[in-house]
Nucleic acid binder design. Sequence first.
RNA 1: GGAGAGAUGGCAGAGUGGUCGAAUGCGGCGGUCUCGAAAACCGUUGUUCGCCUUCCGGCGAACCGGGGGUUCGAAUCCCCCUCUCUCCGCCA
Length: 424
Amino acid sequence: MLTISLIREKKDFISERLKVKNFDAKEILDKIISLDTERRDIQTRADQMQGEMNRISKEIGSLMKEGKKNEAEAAKEKTYKLKEEIKALSDKLIPLDNELKNEIVKLPNLPNESVAPGHGADDNVKVREGGKIPVLPETALPHWDLIKKYDIIDFDLGIKLTGAGFPVYKGKGAKLERALINFFLDEGGKAGYREVMPPIMVNEDSGFGTGQLPDKEGQMYHVGIDNFYLIPTAEVPITNIYRDVILSADELPIKNVGYTPCFRREAGSWGAHVRGLNRLHQFDKVEIVQIAHPDHSYESLGEMVSHVEGLIAKLGLPYRIMRLCGGDMSFTSALTYDFEVWSGAQKRWLEVSSTSNFESFQSNRLKCRYKEKGDKQTRLVHTLNGSALALPRIVAAILENNQTENGIKVPEVLVPYTGFEFID
RNA sequence: GGAGAGAUGGCAGAGUGGUCGAAUGCGGCGGUCUCGAAAACCGUUGUUCGCCUUCCGGCGAACCGGGGGUUCGAAUCCCCCUCUCUCCGCCA
């Protein structure tokens, strides 16, 4: 969420920037300004009266002590009317505050200057590509056939146990999954990230902190009896570690990496293009999260992009990096790079990572701030995260691109983790 | 799941109706001393909102788990909720 001070000071600038995200903010901004003005006016008056009230109360205290009962009673008389007036004002203040907050959370994050305008995936800008697109024989199979052929991932069994979109990984399929997780975590460690293993259910406060709540509750599985949410991404628990925390500037950047299963209801988003591993209700992902100094958060973003790129390159997958246009970017992001790998038999690009700088949009919700050494003032940190990486589509691409007559060739970097070179 | 105890500043821990944003200790920061360090000593030490201020800052309000109530006045009294700990039960 944007800060109220920015809205007050740079209303027109915000309005202009949000056009890049195709968002017309004018009406909301005007409403916010007027609510904020009213709120401040009321608070100023209420504070003054409360101050007067406190002064009189203290006076009564000392009068009582001195035994001047009559004077104390007289002073009490004065408070009755004041008390009523304060109550009237503070009764207005609470709904006003809520209304103000409700309006502010409607505003998306401002896109970074480098974000191009645009409406959808076609307007994204390709910043880099790498690897070689494999030429597969006509007989090449899509991954949903390969997993059956080698009996490594079982969707039907998942349906029996849970439902659609909850696959069972078996034998070398399970080992490949585990190998990828370990590989990604180890690479994260080498890049200076601390490994963490967070809970995969979170409470409401955490859901709000990273922006899943209040709007996207339909996308999360909810455990009603305890009011917990199954995480849609490790971003939620890992970023919320720093909720309500004041850091010192010299601790930044903080880098965490974690593996978790991720759960997404994906309500209403099923169709032909999401066959097999392309979209699941439960999947594995390794996530990198950075808490950065505002002056250096784009250096962090650059570093994260290189890290993710390195992972894909080491796996030998053809990829491209897209800088998302305003219209394709998420509500909360200031700048996002999507990583896509080429899936040889499906003959299409699959998104495997989304790496973003949220600047202070999340930290304002999280109340994650930092202080410069010797400085009294707190400032909001910048938060960033990226998938490094999401597994199912990586698996799909490996299976499809690496299929040979002898089976599926495991990428070399993974062999020490899998213990086998071919899935056959 | 049953019974009991508790939740106070970065941490530990006082405080049971008035001058308490809160003793004291530890930690942190600054200083004295020292070649330097340690020790000792001195000083300082939270957050949020509002108003004023060119900076430094000043003033006011709120915050003692969360919400509500009683009162001129609440960390302190009352109600509700959440969480934690101990014992028992169950259990990887």
